[in-house]
Amino acid sequence: MEFILQNFFNWDIVTQAWPLLLRGFGMTLILMAAVIPVGCIGGLTVALLGQSRFRAVRWMTIIYVDFFRAFPPLVLLIFIYAGLPFAGIDLPAIVSVCLAFLLNSSAYYGEVFRAGIESVGTGQAEAARSTGLSGFQTTTYVVLPQAIRNVLPDLVSNTLEVAKLTSLASVVALPELLYSADMARSVTFNATPIVMAAVLYLVLLWPLVRLLSRIEHGSMSSR
């Protein structure tokens, strides 16, 4: 028991590593605040393009979505971070991360929004158009509000995944929570900082998981 405490819950190390981890945690929050809206807006754009009148545009969005869903996000990130410099494009770590997230999560959010838009009956758009609303107004005021409500569990679930994915930024040396924890670990030769990081992630994301369990069970039983 003593042994486990020593290795995973070492109080001395907690006090030492705390400031570093806190800064990392701040960076993680900033990262989430940046990549979640970027992914959402990108995904919405992809979903709306997927409803285009032109078949070529619809096909291109399907190819885009499947292409980026086939790449593990870490592969995409490394390709951008380590590969693009060879093409003379040297991006700072934070920009690489945002770009990778834009490409990856807009594909996933795009699928969620598409399912939502398709879940709204065509009668809704017809009713709106019959009162003279334009296509854009119909989408904004009638279709999207219902679409988002219909896929709320999927949106929350996807957002949880994106939030967790920010930990990948540690691999390209962006000093977010996991990177800071791993730094502290390699200096102290002790796993306590990683346990601390895990606890911080849990504090942040556990409420989201609970929320998800709530709304998901509701949605499956009412088909």
């Binding site: 009956g121 009668g123 019959s130």
Partner: peptide, 10 residues
């Protein structure tokens, strides 16, 4: 104006 069979209220 148009009135639909299935109402189509928002």
């Amino acid at each position: 104006g148009m009135v639909f069979q299935s109402f189509n209220l928002y």
